[in-house]
Amino acid sequence: MQSARPTPSEPTGRALLKGLAFASPFIIGFLVLYLWPILASGYYSLTDFSLFKAPKWVGLANYERMISDAKFWKSLYNTLFFTFVGVPVDIAISIAGAHILNQKLKGQPLWRALVYLPSIVPAVAAGFLWRWLLNAQYGFVNEILRWFRIPQPNWLLDASWGGISVIVLMLWTVGGTMLIYLAALKNVPQELYEAAELDGAGPLRRFWHITWPMISPVTLFQVIVLIIAFLQVFTQPFVLSKDPGLGTQTATGPGDSMLSYSIYLFQNGFTFLKMGYASAMAWVLLFVTLAITLLILWSAKKWVFYDNR
């Protein structure tokens, strides 16, 4: 019986061709659907291009224009605000929630399913739901704040609260991160906690000296994934800000506080027909994401603990 796998006696070229043939669905898909659009957008970013007319070479003009484009800076600022406030809060809630889910409580599987439930609700549907929850006059969120006599902000029509509203909506799907942390917590050896307890370590010391280092590889992964998601945020601010009933039809929110980078990129490409400028913005976003990711990976040497070292 002959093996289907290439044998050492088979000519190397033939084996290579066979391998390429098997890998071709991915290779072709990658070249056509990923690499080509990436390279094309790089070229378009150096042109005046509108989707309909042939691109006209303008060199670095699109990149130069960004320097004096106030809305570009506003969208970048907003997006970095969403990211640098939203990601730490997301991580903190996830770790806290994972600890609660890790307790031996009755009906634990049900609680775990419930925290994940928002993650399977489509973002647009969630946006419409939260638009009512955050309504300054009739929303449940302000109603709860009223019970506790806490001032009730005008979440969707006050420039200082628009960005916070976007973060709140982003945090609604925190359950996904929480469950990954739950899996990480279950992998922490119990004997470490027992030893620490014998040495008199309290809950905070046990968390800081055992849990945090042991789940730090997961934290590194989560931080990078969340940063990428927050930097590309589109649907949440788009839905929250686009409400004809409120009279705001700009998709940018009060004081442009919900104008995310991706929304401004979309506006330039598909509303203003400035696809060259939109492509340049996409490349800047790529480099911003890359820079932040590399910075985090560099810093990881100091705070991420791998127990196989």
Partner: peptide, 20 residues
């Protein structure tokens, strides 16, 4: 402006039963 925008936030969808 704060009171104006708080009031406007309660406007329902345009040309619906909750139309302002």
């Amino acid at each position: 402006p704060a009171s104006y925008n708080k009031f406007v936030a309660g406007f329902g969808p345009y040309m619906s039963d909750q139309d302002s």
